[in-house]
Amino acid sequence: MREILLYRGCTTPVRLPAYELATMNVLKELGVKAIPMKDVTCCGAQFVESLSPDAFAVIGGRILALAEDEEMDILTLCGACSGSLKITKHNLDNDPGLRRKVNDTLAEEGLKYTGKTRVLHLLQILAQEIGYDEIERHIVRPYNGLKIAAHYGCHVTRPFEIVQVDDPENPTIIDRLAEIAGAEAVDYPGKTRCCGGPMLAMDTTVATKIGQEKIFNVGLVGANVILTACEFCDLQLTQCQFDEAIKPSKRIPVMPITQFLGAAMGIDEERLGFEMNRISPDSVLEALQEGR
């Protein structure tokens, strides 16, 4: 079985462990073993990144060098982790001076960055490394009559020149995966707009309004579920619905793409962590058909 190092990031293991669980189990079914990385730090996104380019480079450089040591690629679940590790890799690969500085610090631990390790976001593993055809072969309980709205996550797809995932203005990977699983992918206004998550650090009211606009737009086109590829987006799009502006009966289930795919692949619900979903996934799971 192919192996890849899973960089879980700070948020997923604490706030959305179901995403970690579902991803590991779905990938295992598809022939990829994801091994959680230990002895790492936060990737530095947003906070360290905003304060010091040198600190940001050495923090990301260390994570990349640890993976090089294991001679493995890195899988990321989070848009921010994915973006910051890819940006750091880009900077280190293109700036020999910065790479020297980083390697001077890493040498104290016997580590060295050379650029061998690739950073792949979950959507890349699914669409490029495993491939749509292989995933389709594993769908045993396709959805029927279900409309999905895909939310990609800004840092997953932008800046395209560096992250190299999908199309930044018209992304399609989540939509295609959902269609393979039998659902209908619907377009909605503001599909590539931010969930508002990064604003939580500075202004939660504004963050909530940004998230709720997305929920409103998804509701307009009659989608039954929102599919995500970043725990931060997932949590934010869920949380913003627990607010007096949205009636409980109007809440739209939100779930990571791997939970959604896993159910259609016939993986047990408890191995996908569905009991942890804050908005009941029942209406989505009821659309699964038995046997193909």
Partner: peptide
């Protein structure tokens, strides 16, 4: 300047 979410839609 700290309110930018770095979503990069404007950049695209």
């Amino acid at each position: 300047p700290w309110l930018c979410m770095t979503c990069r839609l404007c950049e695209e």
